[in-house]
Simulated scan of single mutants.
Amino acid sequence: MPTSDRPRVGHLQEQPSLLHHLLATKCEEADAAEAVLLEALRLAGIVLPSVGVDRAAGRRSGFYLVDLGSARPDVVAQLAAVIRLGVEARSAKPVGATA
């Protein structure tokens, strides 16, 4: 993560504070989650062009969220189909099927 993207909590401290360390860790977790999602989407042949970590909100609130952005309806339908296949594979029966 570039130095400019890391949360800044006070410029006068020589060593980062516990809060700074916690925020940096949360930001790194969001970056990792974003990377995992983008790789899964790539494997499925799906592109969500607006995916990204909301760093500004994270610095304000301490909650670094992965913003999925906007997508065309056909891309959303494709994503839903891939999720459904994954759910069916986990449960070993079609979603919505009765016992």
Score class of each variant (00 low, 15 high):
Ser50Trp: 14
Asp31Gly: 12
Val53Glu: 02
Gly52Met: 08
His21Arg: 14
Glu29Ile: 11
Ile46Ser: 04
Asp54Phe: 10
Val36Cys: 11
Gly45Glu: 10
Arg42Ser: 12
Arg42Phe: 10
Glu28Cys: 00
Pro49Ile: 06
Ser50Gln: 15
His21Ile: 02
Lys26Val: 10
Glu34His: 02
Asp54Lys: 10
Val36Lys: 11
Val53Pro: 02
Gly52Cys: 09
Leu48Ser: 03
Pro49Tyr: 06
Ala44Glu: 01
Ala30Tyr: 00
His21Ala: 06
His21Glu: 08
Leu18Cys: 07
Glu28Ile: 00
Leu37Trp: 02
Ile46Phe: 11
Val47Gln: 09
Ile46Asp: 04
Leu22Pro: 03
Glu34Trp: 08
Gly45Arg: 14
Val36Asn: 14
Leu23Tyr: 05
Ala35Phe: 06
His21Asp: 05
Pro49Ala: 08
Glu39Leu: 14
Leu37Gly: 01
Leu41Asn: 04
Val36Tyr: 14
Glu39Asn: 13
Leu48Lys: 08
Lys26Gly: 10
Leu43Ser: 13
Ala30Val: 01
Glu28Asn: 04
Ser50Val: 05
Glu29Asp: 12
Glu34Thr: 07
Ala35Lys: 14
Glu34Lys: 01
Pro49Ser: 08
Asp31Met: 14
Gly45Asn: 10
Leu41Ile: 05
Ala32His: 13
Glu34Arg: 08
Ile46Arg: 09
Asp31Ser: 14
His20Met: 10
Cys27Ser: 13
Lys26Thr: 11
Glu39Ala: 14
Val51Gly: 05
Leu37Thr: 03
Val51Ser: 08
Gly52Asn: 03
Leu19Glu: 15
Val53Thr: 00
Ala40Val: 08
Leu48Val: 02
His21Ser: 07
Glu28His: 02
Leu18Thr: 07
Glu29Asn: 13
His20Trp: 09
Val53Cys: 05
Gly52Phe: 03
Leu22Cys: 02
Asp31His: 15
Val53Asn: 01
Val53Arg: 01
Leu18Asn: 06
Val53Trp: 03
Asp31Val: 15
Val51Lys: 10
Asp31Ile: 13
Glu29Pro: 06
Gly45Trp: 10
Ile46Lys: 09
Val47Met: 12
Ala32Thr: 14
His20Glu: 12
Ala35Cys: 06
Asp31Asn: 15
Ala24Ile: 02
Ala30Met: 06
Ala44His: 04
Leu43Thr: 11
Leu38Phe: 01
Leu37His: 03
Leu38Lys: 09
Ala35Gly: 01
Leu22Trp: 07
Asp54Tyr: 11
Leu48Cys: 10
Leu23Trp: 04
Val36Trp: 13
Val53His: 00
Val36Ala: 14
Glu29His: 10
Pro49Thr: 07
Ala24Glu: 03
Ala44Ile: 03
Ser50Cys: 09
Ala33Thr: 00
Ala32Asp: 12
Arg42Asp: 11
Asp54Val: 10
Gly45Asp: 05
Leu18Ser: 09
Asp54Trp: 14
